[in-house]
Design a protein around this nucleic acid. Structure first.
Lengths: 214, 214
DNA sequence: CTGCTTTTTGCTCGCATGAGCAAAAGGTAG
DNA sequence: CTACCTTTTGCTCATGCGAGCAAAAAGCAG
């Protein structure tokens, strides 16, 4: 293993010392990985399949550009998170009240499914498939937790401002997360799944569930 | 391969011609499998781990009593389903109105988690880990679907009887399924998870979400 | 030479198989 | 009933085979 490759290892570092071509390769492989994971699931997403999807001759390429499967998965999660955040955040922050933001969160999540149909299935697969094993998994499990926590906090603030009714924010957020994931899973193997419609339905559902009782 | 063993193959058959010892062994192995799957996830639930959990000296034992991993997983799912049905059905059917039954469905599901903490995590793992591959998976994916469909039908009837408000039953049922699964997942790695409390919270949440708007 | 790519090789792990062994069940003859 | 033999049943162990990951070796371009 060459010295530079060890520079690729461990995501937390800067890792900015990358060639253009190397960055392009990594992006190409990550995209292929997302595709494969979404299609066949995390368990069956082998280097061989990913290489084939990326149009590479063999798995050596992946081993060269990534420190290992962990490194690749970390990149996959980071990429999906990055895209999702870029897409959803402005759409959420465009609204002022907590209920509107909650709705925007849900609907933009489903709208994102139209833009990048493979992203959400892939990340769900990786997160459920790794189970907190493998250094990287612990890392982005923590990332997911903070994301959930911030959502919980947002809901709690909405409650304190009297914009929501009375309920346990933690249960609510987990339920929401699970509901979205379940519909994402359904969308993967149902070709004519109307994401926008289901997004609206789910937003309505959680709107009713969180409304202040008059 | 002995003649009897081929009788073990393929679940759909009667397969009632089993010795006491054989039935006991299968049950023992299935229990161990449930335990292991719930603890380390489907992907890492190898014969080796299951054998160790069951106190067996080697994996050959498992291969002897089951036609393959498929056969074992089928049995795992069947066992969990059987227990869950026996537990939940009477608690649901004890109520008359659709909203009460929906609540009973949710709360009895969480109550079941106290009785058999490993069962629900295990089945979720198997169902998400197999992804419709492997003859058996398709089989109990179908079983799950019919279960979901019957729930959808129950909700639809409740709507027609004016006991629920207006919403898409399919979205609602998937959301509910996902919400339960998400909380099951959380319960697995959170030692002091109050299943009853979360069950009540979730039941409240879906009660508000499905109520007829006055 | 250096950076990048492809080919080749090594190693691990999980599942399945089949031979072989021990014990129980069953059958038969004295 | 008992002693012996045969068949069935339950289990262990060694081995094969395939898949997947990783890294080294070899080829190639700038």
């Amino acid at each position: 293993m060459r010295a530079k490759s060890s520079g690729n290892k461990q995501g937390p570092g800067p890792a900015a010392d990358r060639t253009f071509i190397e960055a392009a390769r990594r992006a190409q492989i990550v995209d292929a990985a997302i595709e494969v994971i979404a299609e066949v699931g995390y368990a069956k997403a082998s280097f061989t399949r990913i290489a084939r999807q990326a149009g590479l001759s063999s798995t050596g390429m992946i081993s060269y550009h990534f420190a290992g499967k962990d490194d690749l998965m970390r990149e996959v999660v980071a990429e999906v998170m990055r895209v999702a955040d870029a897409y959803m955040r402005p759409r959420i922050e465009a609204h002022a009240t907590a209920p509107e933001r909650l709705r925007a969160h849900i609907e933009s999540n489903f709208a994102l499914m139209n833009e990048h149909p493979k992203h959400l299935p892939a990340i769900v697969e990786v997160l459920t498939g790794t189970r907190g094993e493998s250094s990287s998994a612990r890392e982005f499990t923590a990332a997911t937790d903070t994301m959930m926590n911030s959502l919980v906090e947002a809901v709690r603030r909405g409650q304190e401002a009297g914009e929501f009714g009375e309920f346990d924010p933690v249960t609510m957020v987990y339920a929401l997360r699970g509901a979205i994931d379940a519909l994402v899973a359904r969308a993967t193997h149902d070709p004519d799944f109307d994401a926008a419609a289901h997004g609206r339905q789910l937003a309505d559902l959680f709107d009713r569930a969180t409304r202040r009782t008059p």
